[in-house]
Amino acid sequence: MKQTSKLIPMAVLLALAAFPLLGADYYTGLAVKLMIYAIFALSLQLLVGGAGLVSLGHAAYFGIGAYAAALLSPESEAAGLAWLLGAAVLGAAAYALVTGALALRTRGVYFIMVTLAFSQMAYYVFHDTDLGGGSDGIYLYFRPQLSLGGWQPFDLDQPGVYYLFVLACLAFTWGFLAMLARSPFGAALAGIRINEQRMRAAGYSTFPYKLAAYVVGAALAGLAGFLYALKDGFVTPELLAWEQSGLVLLMVILGGMGRLGGAVLGAGALILLQELFQSQAIFGDYAQHWHLPLGLSIIALVALLPDGLVGLPAQWRARRRAAAPPADAPEAAPAPAPAPAMPLHGEPHA
């Protein structure tokens, strides 16, 4: 069990790395989109599944990362990768530091409303001012380049290289969040999510923990937004819209809260479902009404999978155990222990 949980991400990583070799350009592009949204969903997973902070304004940081990439790139040449990436991540983190410090004074549904309000504020700044081309959006003409004293280790203009760069960012985000979850910081976040009152009584000032998680989550969302801007070279205010915040929250919920694999599965499922129902080849003219089947399937998935996609194997096992023929019950007198074997250090993390 322990080993499979490590093998699966490795296998997925290898499969993703080999995917462009199939030569299906359209699907390679789709895979890039999927990986970017996986990073975005992972960044929100830290807040929702890690610290129990349900934010409905996470798209603001995605959009700020994307706009930073587009706005800070010169029109006639490529920007430096390191500083452009740094600016995107730090820009998102800075907005999160200011708005998070205020939003985290509230709880529950009020926190949802305040994060929504701050993200809409950012949305209207880009939508209604000339800063980033208003509602038309802005182009990014050259992908940034990494140059170490004249030497260029890789060239993001090559689609294959860009693909691997996005994959590396996804692997980094996963690895970083897995490390964070195991750290004393991550353990404290889990405690805050489960019972903040007890954490304060034990001696934790919970505010700095939540704020740090909020800023880190925003920085990673900024990374996802940065990669998104590089993908098509086009950024619009819709990246910050609340629909986008809702979509990424749905990915986390649909995939399964509290597990890294859940965010990735949720991102994959939503992107692929969207792609499926938008396909004219399959649905013909009905494809323009893709919102309807997408909405219905989301309702069905949430209703049928209370623990999300990532909880599906456990749900199946439980059902098979319940359905097992009672004939062999008298042989094994003691019922199987109800509690799953837990690693001593805490909750099972993916």
Partner: peptide, 27 residues
């Protein structure tokens, strides 16, 4: 939702919180 041991370990960790030691294993 945490083990009995982790309940106590987390309470004990409050005495040495190591806020920035993100690369360390809490266990």
């Amino acid at each position: 939702t945490l083990s009995v041991y982790e309940n106590c370990r987390l309470a004990a960790q409050a005495g040495r919180q190591r806020f920035w030691h993100w690369w360390r294993d809490a266990a």
